[in-house]
Each structure stands twice: as C-alpha cells, then as structure tokens.
Design a protein around this nucleic acid. Structure first.
Lengths: 234, 234
DNA sequence: CGCCCAGTTGAACGTCCTCAAATTGCGTGG
DNA sequence: CCACGCAATTTGAGGACGTTCAACTGGGCG
C-alpha cells in the first residue's frame, strides 16, 4: 500500500495534479488531503473570503463564478474531474466555487499544500503548466464573450460539451447524443447570455435540423458539420 | 559586474520575473537573453505560430489579442514594463502580441528559457505566482465583457489607467490628468466595444463634468467618486 | 495649403434583454 | 395510477443598448 487511505482507489490519481508525484510525494499529499462529498448546488468557496483550502476534483462538475455588486453573475470557468481548484499564494479568493452536480473532492489546507508545492518541484511545475493552459482558456472565453453572437456561443458550447461528455454514438461520425450537465440557467451564466436567449437559440438549432432535443437535458447532434460552421472561431 | 551586459542597467531588474533570481541564476538568464527594440504597432508573436521565444518587457506597452476567423478582434490582456510575455511549455501561441508604443524587450529563446526555469526553482515559482495573478485578471475581464454596460467598462478602464499611469495631480485628492497610452480603437478592442461607443461614452462623461478631455489622448478625472460609482463592480 | 488619419457626431438598425405568460417535466401525495 | 404543485423551460411582445454605416471635424505634417 504505497500511498495510504486517501489516494487509495482514487479515480483521478494519474490524471490529476498528483500524477506528477512519485510515491514519496504522494505520501506527503496523502498526509494533508481528505476526501469530501459535495452536494449539488453547494458552494465550497466564496468570493472575498479567506483562501483556506485547495482541492482536486474527483467527480462531479463545478462552476467558478464572479458577480457584480448588484448581483449580475458570470461563470468564469467550469471545473471537471481531475481539475485543480483553489488559489495558492493569495490570502483570498475572488471567485465562488459551486457544485453543479453531486461531487467529490480531495481537499488540502492551503498552507500545507503550499509547503508541499515548495518541497516537490515536479508538483509545482505541473501546476504551472495547468495554470498556463487555464489562462489560455480564460482568454479564449474573453474573445467569445466580447465578440461572438449568441448563435456562435451556443454552437461552440454544444460542441465543447459533446467532446467532454462523450455520450452515445451509434455509428462513428453519426449523430451523437449526450446529457448536458448544466441547466439552461447555468449555460446562460457560462455564455454571458440569458436563459431565454439560450432557450431560443436551442430551439432554432432544433428547427434547423442541426440538433435534436430528445427531452430532459439530452441533446443530439445531427449535423455536426453545420454546427461547426456556426461555431467558426479562431 | 555581477550580471553581465544584458541585465546591466536593466530598468525592471528587480520588479520583473528575474527579481526572484540570485546572482548565479541571473548570470544564467543573462547568457540566453538579448535586448530588442520594438516599433509601435509591430507584432512580435502571431497566433498559431510556433512559440519560439519568451520575453520580459523593459519599456512600452503591448497588447495580447485574439481574433475570430472572420477578423473580429479582442484584446485579452495588456502588458506593461516588467511583465512577462510568452507561452512556456506549449509548441504554439494562441495570441498575437503587438506593441502599442515604442518598446524594448528582453528576449529569451523558449527552450533555453524552459531549461533555466527547470534549473532555478525560484524563477519557476515566481512565474507561477504571476500566472495565477494574470489568470485572476483574465477572469475579471470575463465578468466585465459578459455583464457590464459600456458606461461601466469605460469608467473602470479610466480608473485602471489612472492608477497605472500616475500622471499629474496638483493637489492630493484633486483632479488627476494623464495620457491614455491607447488610441480609441485600442480601447475599444480591450473593452469589447466599438470605437464609436467608446467615443460617445467619453463624451457623455465629459458632458456630465466627471472627466475633462484637454486634447490629444489626455484625460482629467475631475470627480473620481462619481467615476467609481459608475464603475461599481465586484 | 491641403491631405490624411483619429476622433466625433448622427441616424437607423438589429440583437439580445426584460418582463410576462404559457407549457413541460417531475416528484409527491392522495 | 392519477392529480397536484413546483421548478425549469419555452414562447411571445416590446424595448434598450450598442452596432453599423455615413458624414463631419480637427490637428499634425508633408
């Protein structure tokens, strides 16, 4: 038993940040980490509060959101299993972290995590790599939010989700069906639109025969090429 | 002479990334870095191209921009003296880097810079810290681009610029005058608006007696409190 | 002196938002 | 099993904000 009870049977052991560590490093992390279940809708960190802990996501989906003083809200990032959450090296967080589904996370107290970061160079390097990638994503979303139409945003979002979710695909290249892990409201928050606009655009895509909406949160991509045409980006 | 000809008399020696290094580390960086003048409007990195080098900005202002296939453009970050530019650990850049003024930079070949990063842990840690801060900024801009009105964006932008630029301030707390280092077009690119909207909003602020526009790119903030009221954010 | 470019101003339009109502989906309890 | 109630979603009508297109202004420089 090389890595103790927390890492034991961890679903994201190799793909998460920890994947960069050798056994001794893993033992270090294992010492300070502990698993926690998070209920759907539960917020695990609040903007403006002290940055008390960091975590790896084991399962479930989270949103990272910011809001204006008068309550307008924007999701500035989605977090999937194996993603890292938290803000090392800063006393406070600027964003809320909220579960969009039932979830499980592996939590580390921030000071202890920072010490581990300092002790294990490979962990720090991996965090740097991930942060740079996340920064690229955040910048890509700036382009979307500033310059793309509602139709383009929805098309891109559906394609992104299709990739993330996998889902049923009877014949390769054929129609793909999957469940959106977000409500219409959550989608609107991500895309910088309103619920109504999201709904209308989905309806339009359905009317155009590009997608089908079999019910619930399910989506079927019928004509992927057309959807990609609408999403046309960089 | 502890750090050779490049770092010699470097204006940002202590505030840039390099500030984290001791003399031996600095000697390492000095070996691979070289200074370069950049003309106003010159683009030093192109989206989609190979990520060949990284750099520290010694003087001048740069924009980091992304664009859609059909030419809509968005500035996703502004880079000031002492800021780091480049994308270590990735084969290509996703963004253009363009000088908005005459500038000078200290360039490192990317592979050599990455090696230095690996050899000097403190450099890597400082880059991580900076990247995390930049990520926070990028997320803040997402909120702005998605949810703030043109008026709010302009107000916030003017306040941010006033802080960055310093500028003349006859009496403490009194009116502050400074030159915007960006054209109206560049401002529009940053704020996700059009030139016309930027111009109209500036005119409105002037008409309201909140700012004055003494000519050229100069701006005077007459009633800071009111401007802050309009900018109301997180 | 006149050109040229940045900036300003004006008018019309379109996209997306707001507010409101109708509809659907789903869990609960009768 | 069906009725009910709540929440999520869809649909509709109207309006606001920012864009688009176009004309005009002013300052710098040949």
């Amino acid at each position: 038993m090389e890595c103790g009870q927390v890492c034991e049977g961890c679903a994201v052991r190799d793909v998460a940040l920890c994947g960069s560590l050798d056994d001794s490093g893993l033992a270090d992390l294992n010492r300070i980490g502990r698993r926690r279940r998070v209920g759907c809708g539960e917020t695990i960190a609040w903007a403006g509060e002290e940055s008390r802990s960091c975590a790896n996501i084991l399962s479930g989906l989270f949103k990272l959101s910011a809001s204006t003083a008068d309550g307008r809200e924007q999701t500035v990032g989605l977090l999937y299993p194996a993603d890292f959450v938290g803000r090392p090296y800063a006393p406070r967080t600027d964003y809320n972290v909220t579960a969009l589904s039932e979830a499980e996370i592996c939590v580390f107290p921030r000071p202890a995590f920072e010490e581990t970061l300092e002790r294990h160079n490979e962990l720090e390097r991996e965090l740097l790599r991930r942060t740079l990638t996340t920064l690229d994503e955040a910048r890509g979303r700036q382009l979307m939010l500033a310059r793309q139409s509602a139709e383009e945003r929805i098309a891109r979002f559906l394609l992104d989700m299709a990739k993330k979710m996998g889902g049923a695909r009877p014949t390769p290249g054929g129609p793909q069906t999957f469940d959106l892990p977000l409500s219409r409201g959550a989608i609107a928050d991500v895309l910088g639109l309103t619920i109504e606009t999201v709904s209308r655009q989905m309806t339009r895509l359905k009317a155009a025969g590009i997608i089908a909406l079999p019910g619930g949160r399910a989506v079927t991509i019928l004509r992927r090429a057309d959807l990609q045409g609408l999403a046309a980006e960089t």
